[in-house]
Structures are given as C-alpha cells and as structure tokens.
Nucleic acid binder design. Structure first.
Ligand SMILES: [Mn+2]
Ligand SMILES: [Mn+2]
Ligand SMILES: [Mn+2]
Ligand SMILES: [Mn+2]
Lengths: 220, 220
DNA sequence: TTTTATTTTTAGCCTACCCTAAATCATAAA
DNA sequence: TTTATGATTTAGGGTAGGCTAAAAATAAAA
C-alpha cells in the first residue's frame, strides 16, 4: 500500500490539478509555480513521487500522473472539499476563509474520520466553491459547465462554481452579490472589452469585466 | 509571540501532565517514558523548550514548567479535548477511539477554528473522559473528585472521569456498564484485595478489582 | 549548425526530529 | 572517601523537506 507524507499529498494534488485530471503533461516549473517552492526542491520531490509510482517522471521532460496517482489525488481532494463543507456549513466560516484550514485538516490520517464526516455532512456532492466532491472510490459526478463570459446574449443559467477561489475574488463576488446557486441571465455583452451585464435572480443587475466573468462557471 | 511546532506542543502537553499542573519537577527520563522517545532525543528537545522559555531547564537536574509554558500547554489541551468532544458527540466515535485523531486535529493552526468549534459544540466544560476543558484564557473549572477505591462503604456519588483513558480500559468499562455520569453506590469492599462492589443507577451491580476502581474518579 | 537562452538537475547546506553509541555527571553504596 | 550505578548529555548519523549556486540538458535563435 502506497502511503504519502503531507508534503507529497500536497504536491500530488497540485499535479492532478495541473494535469487537468490526467490529460496534460506537467513540467517542473509548472509545479514550482503552483506550489510556490523552488524548481530545485520540485526536482527532488518528483524523483520521490516517481519512485512511489504515483507519477511517471522522465528527467528534463516533465511528468504524467499515473492511475494510482489519480486515485490518491482524488482522495486528498475529497478530504479537502469535505472539510471545506464542514467549515462553511457547520462552523460558519465564509467561503473565502476555508482553503488553508481545510488543507491542514485534510492531512489527518484516519479513514473512518472522513467516512463519518461525509455521513455527518449528509454526503454533500459539491464544496462551497461549487467543485465536485469525489466519492470514496474516487468517482466524480461532473456537471456540464460553461464560462460566463462565453455565454450568448440572452441565455440563462445558474452559477455552479468558480475557477479562481482566491479570497480576493470570492470577497468581490460577495460584494457584488454573485453566489453559487444564483440564477442568472446575460443582459448585455460588450465585444470591445468582453465585459457582460447579468441579471441575478431576476432582480439585481451586475456589471462584470471579462476577467471576472471568465472565472465564473455556469450550468445552462 | 512564542510559537511551537507540533512536536514541541506534544512534549509540552506531556510535561504539563507530568508536572501535575505545575506543582512537580520533571526528569528527562519521565518525559522519555511518557513520550516514548529516547532520553537522548528528549535532552535535545528540552534544550529547545528551555530556549523558548516555556520550561526552566537545568542540565542534569530536570525541569520546571513556566507560567508561559502552562498557558500554552492548556491551549493545546483545550484543543485536544474540544476535538474529542466533536468526534464523540458529532461523528459518533466511541470514547476509546478518539485520542490519536484528536491529537492530530489539535495541531491545526487556526485560532478562530477553535473558537468556532467551541461555540458549535455549545461550550462544553468536559471531554468524553470527564476531563475539564480549559477556556480560551486557560482557566479550568476543577471538580472535587475522589478515587472510587477510596470511598467508604455505603457512600454514593457520580462517576465524573477516568484516570486511565487507554482504549483497553475504556472498552472494559463499556463492557461492564460503567460510564461518565453514572450514579453509583458502594455496596461492598474487600479489604484483602481492595476490590469493591458498586451499584450503578440503582439497578446494576458491578464487581471491580482495585486496579479498575483506582482509575475511576467519583464526585460525592 | 552553432550559439544563446531557458529549463532542469545536481551539489552542498540548513532546520526539525528522531536514533545509537559513547562520554559525562550525580548520587548511592561500600 | 572512593567506587559503582544509573541518569543524562554529547557526538554523529538518518530522513524529510526546504534553500542557493553552479552545472548540465534542452529548446530557441542566429
Ligand atoms: Mn480549497
Ligand atoms: Mn474548494
Ligand atoms: Mn486524549
Ligand atoms: Mn480526553
């Protein structure tokens, strides 16, 4: 049985995200940027992850995540997202405050803890940022989603997730009144700068830059 | 501001317990036995804890915990016991399963997390083993307690805590039907071996060896 | 195809925490 | 008062995970 340290779990989770779930290859510098550690440190870690066969690593040519690696990454993601739900739903954290704490909590080694937590939370399918929570076998029920800035004029849908979950972005969404679950309609699009105007819950009109709209995912 | 690593927190908590809350001096070997690490490793750690001034350490002569050390130890104990309550009350763990997991959880660095957890749990005053939970200033409301094997024949009281909280002992108590909160009466005492017979909740009679009774704390 | 720029790895060092073996100190016994 | 015993510390080494600086490999440009 493969066991990973906390640091290895963090790297593997980052690699999984960079791999877009296993489709893309990933470079040392990619990982370095994502993890905010120096490329030299990354090289060393990649060698170790390669030896544990959670990635396939060729010196100077980057890496691919393996099937085993995907499974383990999904388990770490599952733990992280369940803790985020706990923090928001039970402890009344706001969605921009949970990432670091959930990261620490997600490294607690106890299988039954996560099962019980999942049950206690009512087997949630999505985390506070709209990201899907893998089940204990690593299966993810994905929803078809589109970027808000790519929707046609007049189309309607529901905000289901955010691409960027930095505190700054999330607080901005809170401020303008956009939230996961909101029903929206595209009222206006400006070709020149890619900005959009949307109507939220048939009530409130919001103007958004392309940058903002490009980080909001909508289910039509 | 003094910050401790997880390992330092664990050592300091052990030292606090060995000090009996600050009354007794503690030797390197005491800590070694409690922490299950070699005396050589303990020496090294004591030097570090001495530099951080959470203990007063004199080479070859043992240590005393400082006021600052007591405060920090009580904060760690608070976190540990709150997580134990969470695991038992919310996640339906049994009281013999929570110690290790609560230990890991208690090292998560987030002040507000503990405040929110405390609030969410309804500001509990005691953990599942009957041990008091210090408040955020480190104040502990102690209850007057007596060892069950030292009670007089015929006296009554309530089980409020256990001295030994090893899984083996706790499971034994579950088996015979003793639990925190149970009302008891001493029905018989055998001078020869120190064993006692108690009546639980005016219903069930339990026979206990001196070893068992000596690890049960009763409020008269 | 050669040179240059960029990426990646290696080498060497650091901190934290643990270990064993050897040295040292304190103290109890002779 | 000397010696022996036991407790404690030091010395040296291991793993994990960082870092910087230098070397090496790849990729891009000339
Ligand atoms: Mn997160
Ligand atoms: Mn999330
Ligand atoms: Mn405990
Ligand atoms: Mn306890």
């Amino acid at each position: 049985m493969i066991t990973l340290t906390s640091a290895e779990e963090n790297y593997l989770k980052a690699i999984y995200h960079l791999s877009d779930g296993g489709k893309k290859g990933v470079s040392t510098n990619d990982v370095s940027a994502e993890m905010k550690t120096k490329p030299a440190s990354v090289s060393d870690m990649l060698r170790k992850l390669g030896e544990k066969e959670v990635i396939e690593y060729r010196k100077y040519y980057g890496l691919h995540i393996t099937e085993e690696g995907k499974k383990l990454a999904l388990q770490t993601i599952r733990k992280h997202r369940l803790w985020e739900v706990f923090l928001v739903e039970k402890l009344k954290f706001s969605w921009d405050e949970v990432n670091e704490v959930a990261d620490e909590l997600s490294h607690v080694k106890c299988k039954v803890l996560i099962q019980r937590l999942d049950e206690y939370l009512g087997f949630p399918k999505f985390d506070p940022h709209g990201d899907p929570i893998p089940d204990e076998y690593g299966d993810v029920r994905a929803r078809p989603r589109q970027l808000l800035n790519e929707l046609d004029l007049g189309s309607t849908g529901q905000i289901v997730a955010v691409k960027d979950s930095s505190p700054a972005f999330l607080r901005y969404l809170d401020k303008v009144g956009a939230y996961i679950g909101a029903r929206i309609k595209v009222m206006d699009k400006t070709e020149f700068d890619g900005s959009v105007e949307i109507l939220v819950d048939n009530k409130k009109s919001i103007f958004m830059s392309k940058d903002v709209a490009g980080n909001i995912l909508v289910m039509v």
